[in-house]
């Protein structure tokens, strides 16, 4: 592990200049590494990934990808920076068809290349093929999540950011999604994901960061945090000592 693929250093960010949500958060992700971010509701987990994606302004600190500075990136340049991002909510266009959703995801590619990768996506996710000309609003929550991930992978990113990919899925689906993510990592894609399914996330990811009140609290190899009693305390919102 020389230079990290994603390096977030000490960022302050928020929706309004006078009200920072993140107070100096640092996170790093290496090539082909799976990193989880956990923390209580309102901790700033989504805000962190949004800030990396350029959707929330960063007032201090830096974000870099593979050594180049992408702080306050224009969001439409995410793909150029080799990042793909699946938001927590509203992550598909419900008024467009599955096919149109995928076509939008391929809009940074040439038409021919886009068509080729969309065909591959249909092979990988048969459920999408089945509904390809239906509006995305007919999809179930799990199917929408599948569509959102399939869309994100079209640009063949080096880093995939997922905000609660398992939200609202049945336990069976959760393990299925995580298995798929694991196999993605084995192909060399790095993953930064926010999760509420703490147990499953700790079991599958390489490293984990615990965030609370817009600050880093604990981080380390997931296997070590799994047995840490402090994680449970913070996670349950009991506060925990400031470190």
């Amino acid at each position: 592990m020389t230079t990290a693929l994603l390096q977030v250093s000490d960022i302050t960010a928020g929706y309004r200049p006078d009200l920072p949500i993140l107070h100096g958060v640092s996170v790093s992700v290496s090539e082909a590494e799976m990193v989880t971010i956990i923390g209580p509701n309102g901790a700033g987990k989504s805000t962190l990934v949004k800030a990396i994606a350029g959707l929330v302004p960063i007032s201090s600190g830096t974000v870099s990808v593979a050594g180049s500075n992408v702080t306050n990136l224009l969001t439409h340049k995410l793909a150029t920076a080799s990042i793909a991002y699946v938001p927590q909510t509203a992550n598909v266009f419900t008024t467009l068809t599955i096919d149109e959703n995928l076509k939008l995801g391929a809009s940074t590619l040439s038409k021919a290349e886009g068509a080729r990768r969309i065909a591959m996506a249909y092979d990988n996710f048969p459920v999408l093929q089945k509904y390809r000309s239906h509006k995305a609003k007919v999809l179930s929550g799990g199917q929408r999540q599948t569509l959102a991930v399939a869309r994100a992978l079209l640009t063949e990113p080096r880093l995939l950011m997922l905000d609660e990919p398992s939200a609202g899925l049945s336990p069976l689906m959760v393990s299925e999604v995580f298995e798929r993510l694991k196999s993605l990592v084995s192909t060399g894609v790095a993953i930064l994901m926010v999760e509420q399914n703490v147990k499953a996330a700790l079991a599958i990811s390489d490293r984990t960061y615990v965030l609370a009140e817009g600050r880093n609290r604990i981080d380390g190899p997931s296997s070590e945090l799994a047995g840490d009693s402090q994680v449970a305390t913070i996670y349950l919102g009991a506060g925990g000592r400031k470190r």
Binding site: L55, T75, H76, L78, V92
Partner: peptide
């Protein structure tokens, strides 16, 4: 429908 998601899709 969703301006942010359009940007996330790489469109200016």
């Amino acid at each position: 429908e969703n301006p942010d998601l359009v940007r996330i899709n790489g469109i200016d």
